[in-house]
Amino acid sequence: MTITDVPSLVLIAERLPQIFPEGTEHRNYLIREMAAKTIYVMFYAGAIEGTDRWIRPSQVTDMTDEQAQLTDIEYREAWVKMMLSNKKKKPENPWYAANSREPVRDETIRTGLIPLQAVVIRQGIPTTSSKPTYALQKDFSELFSPVLHGDKLDSAISSWQQKYLSKAAITRLKLMKDYGSEDSEFVQINFPDGSIRKLEPGPSSLLSKAVIEEFAPRFLKKPKVLWLSESGNKVVAQDEVLAKALGLQIDPSRALPDIILVDLGDDLSGLEMLVIFTEVVATDGPINRQRKEILTNLATEAGFDSKHLAFLTAFIDRSSRPFKKSISELAWGSYAWFSTEPDYIIDLREYDESAKLTSLK
């Protein structure tokens, strides 16, 4: 098959963040310069699914600015032939050092592009072989057509995402998009008891909604919302009857968390009851060691045993800046949860005899 045209490196670099938006797993590997140059070299070599043309990582590292500008077919064919021969010469001013082959192969291609089906692997070639084995997936390559722009480009990208990304990845991207939108006049939250509360629009409100509507029913047996506030310490909901029954004094002037959940459990004796102090972190403010101590004192002063307390920090996504910024501060003996991956939770477990790793099996 004939070799195809090469889109500009600038165009490839511009479109990668659109194709792989916030929330895409390993996005840093997918939108950086090395990814754009890897894709450029695949186009340059004509390595697109169905052409039986392939590249190896050394072709990316050995490419030069001078060679990349020679896009006529005869120059490209000659370069490919030379690069795959035993007589290839070491290029002057290559894009990357020779030891950068590993990041190209392991990070950009294997960890980034292949799991998202943007790159295909040549079958029947041993992993130890030096033969070229990577090519662009055909539908993915078409997203870089220069004739696509505006609504047509958006539609093509959306169609590719729906067809090739996993259901979990699609859900994650949709939620990340929702968190960036403030079009609604308010955020409506449906409480476990059927009541409804409204919050001002914004990422924190959407995250609070996710904690109450998604986290609580997944991880708690019989959830109740004891307390909900929003920015500026505005009290949105306070269950005074339940608080009084529990003996928990809720004083808005104290350093209360964004949300206090209560799991009444299945045991009417109260032995399974759990109070979950929750901070939603759209920007800052996780449950760190000091915060955990303050909240623990608040509960123990009300007569609660520490075994009936849990501490949760809710984030939008593992790839978000707030989580990356906060991870080193999160308190041991607390949990981290991500609204874009609602079925999973991180347990920052403290050591005790029952916490042996064998107990996780």
Rank of each mutant, 00 (worst) to 15 (best):
I3S: 11
D5M: 02
V10L: 06
E14M: 03
H26T: 04
I31G: 02
I31D: 05
R32A: 11
E33K: 12
M34C: 04
A35P: 06
A35T: 08
K37L: 07
T38G: 04
F43C: 09
A47D: 01
A47F: 00
E49K: 00
R56H: 09
M63E: 03
A68Q: 02
V80C: 13
S85T: 06
N86A: 09
P91C: 07
N93V: 03
W95S: 10
W95H: 14
W95E: 11
Y96E: 06
Y96M: 12
Y96C: 08
N99E: 13
R101P: 03
E107L: 10
T108N: 08
T111F: 05
T111I: 09
I114R: 14
Q123T: 15
I125W: 05
T128V: 10
S129M: 10
P132L: 14
T133P: 00
K138Y: 04
D139C: 02
D139L: 02
P146A: 01
D151E: 11
K152G: 05
S155E: 14
I157S: 11
Q161N: 04
K163A: 13
A169I: 07
I170D: 06
S184L: 13
Q188M: 14
D193S: 12
E200D: 15
S204I: 05
K209T: 14
A210C: 05
L220V: 08
P223E: 05
K224F: 04
S229T: 10
S229M: 15
N233A: 11
V235H: 06
V236P: 00
Q238D: 04
D239S: 03
E240M: 03
E240H: 06
L242E: 02
A245P: 00
L246C: 00
L246M: 02
G247F: 01
Q249N: 05
I250Y: 00
R254S: 08
L256E: 02
P257I: 01
V262P: 00
D267M: 02
L268Q: 03
G270P: 03
E279H: 07
D284G: 01
P286D: 01
Q290T: 05
E293I: 07
L295S: 06
A299V: 01
T300S: 01
E301S: 07
S306Q: 10
L309M: 08
L312W: 05
D317K: 01
S320L: 00
R321K: 09
F323A: 13
Y335S: 13
A336T: 12
T340V: 15
I345D: 10
D352P: 10
L357P: 13
T358M: 12
S359G: 09
L360T: 14
